Computed example of a mutant assay.
Amino acid sequence: MAVIVASTREGRFGPTVAAWFAGEARGRSDLEVDVVDLADEETVTGRLGLADAFAVVTPEYNHSYPAPLKAVIDAHHSEWHAKPVGFVSYGGLSGGLRAVEHLRPVFAELHAVTVRDTVSFHGGRYCFGSDGLPTDPSECGAAAGRLLDRLAWWGTTLREARETRPYVTA
């Protein structure tokens, strides 16, 4: 599973959220985790192609998602086909959920399967302590567990399906 850090802004908070979520995922035996930071553009392409599932860690900028994320999504096609995408969002009052809702139809157009369950941090930075961990880990930990369950199931199921019968988009 690729955990994608969508923000590339200076002073961004995404790496903190991504590190926490990746830690939750690494605690499982059914997932291998690769954190793909969009600020490091040179390594993105090959790493996306290797993933069987994606977790996009995104802020909400101006009621939507960051432009660098859109550029990476649009620059790749087959990397997304018949693979699940989950979302971990953060932001102000909406917790990044408007960004997530804008991403769902974009990924649908690329033949990806978005999962219903999300992890959302309303107030972003205020939800984490100075140690980089959530101040109330029970609720977000439970949400992360549900999201990871879905991504693991869909990722395995769709990988097996692609191996049995290649996915056709034309």
Rank of each mutant, 00 (worst) to 15 (best):
D52C: 14
D52M: 08
P59Q: 04
V57T: 07
T43N: 04
D52A: 15
V44N: 01
H63L: 13
A55M: 11
H63F: 15
P68K: 00
S64R: 11
Y61F: 13
L69R: 01
R47N: 05
S64N: 11
L50K: 14
V44M: 00
R47M: 01
A51P: 11
V44E: 00
A51G: 12
A53V: 13
P59I: 12
N62K: 04
N62Q: 12
T58V: 15
P59S: 07
A51N: 13
L48S: 02
G46E: 10
A53G: 15
L69A: 06
L48G: 03
L50R: 15
E41S: 13
D52R: 14
A53I: 10
P66C: 02
S64I: 06
E60V: 08
A67I: 07
A71P: 02
H63A: 11
A55D: 11
A55I: 14
P68I: 09
K70V: 03
E60Q: 11
N62P: 05
L48K: 04
P68L: 10
V56Q: 13
E42Q: 09
N62S: 14
T45D: 02
T58H: 10
G49D: 09
Y65E: 11
S64C: 13
P59A: 07
T45F: 03
R47L: 02
T45W: 03
T58W: 13
A67P: 00
D52K: 12
T45A: 05
Y61P: 02
P68E: 00
Y61L: 07
G46N: 01
R47D: 06
V56Y: 11
V56K: 12
K70G: 08
T43E: 00
Y65M: 06
L48T: 00
E42M: 05
A55T: 15
T58N: 13
L48A: 05
D52H: 15
K70I: 06
L50I: 02
G49H: 15
T43R: 02
V56T: 09
P68T: 12
L69H: 05
V56P: 12
Y61C: 06
G46D: 08
A53W: 06
V57F: 09
V56A: 08
A53R: 12
T43M: 00
Y61R: 06
E60W: 04
T43G: 03
L48D: 00
T45G: 01
E60S: 07
E42P: 02
L50Y: 09
F54T: 10
V44F: 07
R47W: 04
Y65S: 07
H63I: 00
T43W: 03
T58Y: 12
P59R: 04
V56C: 10
L69P: 02
K70Y: 05
V56L: 15
R47H: 03
E42N: 04
A51C: 07
V44C: 01
N62I: 10
A53H: 11
P59C: 04
T45R: 03
L50Q: 15
P59W: 04
A51E: 09
V57I: 13
E42V: 14
P66I: 06
F54G: 08
F54E: 04
E60R: 02
T58R: 12
P59Y: 06
A53D: 09
Y65Q: 05
A55H: 15
A53Q: 10
N62Y: 03
R47I: 03
Y65F: 15
F54L: 09
L69Q: 00
L69N: 03
E60C: 01
A71K: 10
T58A: 13
A67N: 02
Y61E: 03
V56W: 06
L48E: 00
P68A: 08
E41K: 14
